[in-house]
Amino acid sequence: MRNNPLEHNKYVKVFLLGMQNEMEYRTNYWLQLFSFILPLMTQVFLWLAVFGSSGERRLLGYSLEEMLVYAVMAAVTGRLIAAGFEYEIAADIKEGGLGKFLVQPVHYFAYRFFRFAGAKAVQSAVIWMGAVCMLAGLSLWGGTGFSMTHLLLYMLTLPGALLLNFLVYYTLSGMAFWITEATGLFYTLSLVIYVASGTVFPLTIFGEAVGRLLSLLPFAYTVFFPVNAVTGKLNGSLIAAGIGLQAFWIAVLLILSRVVWRAGVRRFVSVGG
């Protein structure tokens, strides 16, 4: 009987480790679901109030139906691609835990990515459960819906958004080599990225000039771009161009992260771990 080579692949084991860590605390699933739905409900009622008080059929380039779908899918996408490992990396650098990866045949970048992917495989089930409930409720209540074609286009943009967001935070985590306590900095930058990615509001809320500037940054292609694919505001050529820009920023951040980490590892001193 031939052995399956995947069973002995160290990064497959890391992927499974990420899944196991996510499933270790089951109560956390329900807390995640609650913490996901509550802010989302706030967004939905906010936009209902804004459209109701304005009397306009379209605001910021969106109809009420499109805006509600945007609010739901932006929250979903933000959770699907969310990082969080930057704090763990900072702890590895500060406490010396990174040292063991430098002397073992395990690439730290690959280790972090496969562990991140494993965790996302589990989180996605919980997040999509809440998303389906919200979209079904909106469809039954107000006739809000979207086509399967738009959903498929959204799924095409999601892998690039996931990898791009991983690289953004992996690159930023390298700052922990120069800053002893990077938690506050990570938190501040996360808030900025949260807004600049379009997770809170569509980027059109900032006006044409600022919106165009933000569209030149990688953050817009993690949430704003995929969500506009599912709302039907992008045609085939714009989808292709957006995926191309995702690939461009992924290549740039791969190079940048390598430069940052090489420089950081040269000054790294393991004093713990």
Rank of each mutant, 00 (worst) to 15 (best):
residue 3 N to L: 14
residue 125 A to F: 15
residue 93 I to A: 00
residue 173 S to G: 10
residue 257 S to C: 11
residue 197 S to W: 05
residue 86 E to P: 06
residue 184 G to N: 14
residue 152 L to S: 13
residue 6 L to D: 02
residue 247 A to V: 14
residue 78 G to Y: 11
residue 156 L to F: 11
residue 24 E to H: 04
residue 37 I to F: 03
residue 125 A to D: 03
residue 57 R to W: 11
residue 272 G to A: 15
residue 187 Y to K: 09
residue 226 P to S: 13
residue 79 R to S: 12
residue 126 V to H: 01
residue 10 K to P: 00
residue 252 V to H: 00
residue 139 S to T: 09
residue 30 W to Y: 10
residue 20 Q to Y: 11
residue 157 T to S: 15
residue 128 W to F: 15
residue 102 L to V: 02
residue 198 G to K: 05
residue 10 K to G: 07
residue 51 F to A: 04
residue 78 G to F: 05
residue 2 R to Y: 13
residue 194 Y to L: 07
residue 187 Y to F: 15
residue 148 M to R: 01
residue 184 G to S: 14
residue 224 F to L: 08
residue 52 G to Y: 04
residue 166 F to L: 06
residue 36 F to T: 10
residue 259 V to T: 12
residue 96 G to M: 07
residue 231 T to R: 01
residue 127 I to G: 03
residue 30 W to V: 12
residue 257 S to E: 10
residue 200 V to D: 06
residue 75 A to H: 03
residue 88 E to D: 14
residue 139 S to R: 09
residue 239 I to Y: 08
residue 186 F to T: 06
residue 114 F to T: 01
residue 67 M to P: 07
residue 4 N to T: 12
residue 163 L to D: 09
residue 60 L to K: 12
residue 169 Y to E: 02
residue 270 S to K: 14
residue 122 V to H: 02
residue 262 R to T: 06
residue 114 F to H: 05
residue 69 V to Q: 02
residue 1 M to V: 10
residue 108 Y to S: 01
residue 41 M to H: 02
residue 75 A to K: 05
residue 146 F to K: 00
residue 172 L to C: 03
residue 12 V to M: 11
residue 196 A to T: 15
residue 24 E to R: 10
residue 166 F to M: 03
residue 52 G to N: 07
residue 272 G to S: 13
residue 222 T to N: 02
residue 268 F to Q: 02
residue 273 G to C: 12
residue 4 N to E: 12
residue 123 Q to F: 06
residue 176 A to Y: 04
residue 142 G to H: 06
residue 151 L to W: 11
residue 25 Y to V: 10
residue 198 G to P: 08
residue 211 G to M: 00
residue 244 G to C: 08
residue 195 V to N: 04
residue 216 L to P: 05
residue 84 G to N: 10
residue 172 L to V: 11
residue 71 A to E: 03
residue 172 L to K: 01
residue 246 Q to T: 02
residue 234 L to M: 14
residue 246 Q to H: 12
residue 108 Y to V: 01
residue 61 G to R: 07
